[in-house]
């Protein structure tokens, strides 16, 4: 017997052309991403149903020194996953919001006041710190000043992407703007969801856990263990070739066509912690190693300096 709440939820789903079966299938993918056993699928589905019936928690999404790739990745969430996104209310997001200029500024101010101590602050991009933050501004305020004002008023802080987590490309040597990740720039410990871009499934996993008030276990550099607990190498579909000593030594070779291991072309899978081989990108379509390209280590701090040159064995 379905509860009223479930009834409403599935009616809403059907209105979107999403069947209960599609939804459960997606929950299965998400459950696996969250590192939970198959037996938890119904629990995850239930958590989403419950979240959908409650007032939506407010999200303020700030853009600093970034390329908007993380927002774009988030927008690639397939149709079914969008149901989960509807359990939150994005009150401020410069890439998608209709208002501009001082109306936009007012939205930010109002959201922060209205949901003070309750909203989730998602930060995309690194923060310029040289010359009092002179190299990055919105509405005539530096990224640094905005972050110092808004972030402490949030209930939780998520750094989305390697730039917000650890500085990313903006902080690659010689780092002209003195860019830093949010944690470093503000002296706080956010939940870091690195990757260039990060997999949107990892953000959804965090959202579901957050909404159901479950603890989110983090590694020593702030990454959720469910997504970043194992190396790319550990789960690589080409691992057997590594073990057998079968390597690609030149792109376009017979060995490349046979899908051998890319380690000798500089693959950084062994040093990189992320769930790319299992979660994959764009609704499970692929990930770089599947496309024949070595991993460049994009979810590790300072990978632009520590993992380069990318095409040399490390």
């Amino acid at each position: 017997m379905k509860t009223d709440q479930q009834h409403d939820f599935y009616e809403k789903l059907e209105a979107k052309g999403v069947s209960r079966r599609d939804f459960i299938k997606y929950c299965t993918v998400l459950t696996a991403t969250m590192g939970l056993p198959y037996s938890c699928v119904s629990k995850v589905a239930e958590q989403i149903e419950q979240a959908a019936s409650k007032p939506r928690p407010a999200v303020v999404w700030l853009h600093f020194g970034e390329c908007t790739g993380c927002s774009e990745a988030f927008l690639r969430t397939p149709d079914v996953g969008a149901i989960i996104l509807e359990t939150i209310s994005v009150e401020y997001h410069e890439t998608i919001m209709a208002a501009s200029g001082h109306q936009a500024e007012k939205n930010l101010h109002d959201a922060v006041e209205k949901y003070k101590g309750q909203f989730v602050c998602i930060v995309e991009g690194a923060i310029a710190t040289n010359y009092n933050g002179a190299y990055g501004k919105v509405g005539n305020r530096t990224f640094l000043a905005i972050a110092q004002d808004i972030v402490p008023k949030a209930a939780a802080v998520i750094s989305i992407g390697t730039c917000a987590a650890y500085g990313g490309v903006a902080s690659a040597k010689p780092n002209p703007g003195g860019y830093k990740g949010v944690g470093d720039a503000l002296g706080i410990k956010p939940i870091n969801i690195p990757g260039c871009p990060p997999n949107p499934l990892n953000l959804l996993g965090v959202i579901v856990k957050y909404l159901s008030k479950e603890p989110i276990e983090l590694d020593s550099i702030g990454r959720p263990m469910f997504a970043y607990g194992e190396s790319v190498h550990d789960n690589c579909p080409r691992l057997k070739f590594y073990d057998e000593g079968k390597f690609v030594t030149e792109f376009g070779s017979k060995e490349a066509e046979l899908g051998y291991c890319l380690y000798q072309l500089g693959c950084k899978g062994p040093q990189t912690y992320n769930n790319c081989p299992t979660a994959k990108f764009n609704d499970g379509t692929s990930f770089p190693i599947q496309a024949g390209h070595p991993c460049i280590g994009c979810s590790e701090p300072d990978f632009w300096d520590t993992m380069t040159p990318f095409y040399e064995e490390s």
Binding site: G69, P288, G292, H293
Partner: peptide
Amino acid sequence: GKNPHPQSLVVGGVTSV
């Protein structure tokens, strides 16, 4: 391999054979 930031170009061609 992914979008955004696809990763199959290399100097000399593409890798997704």
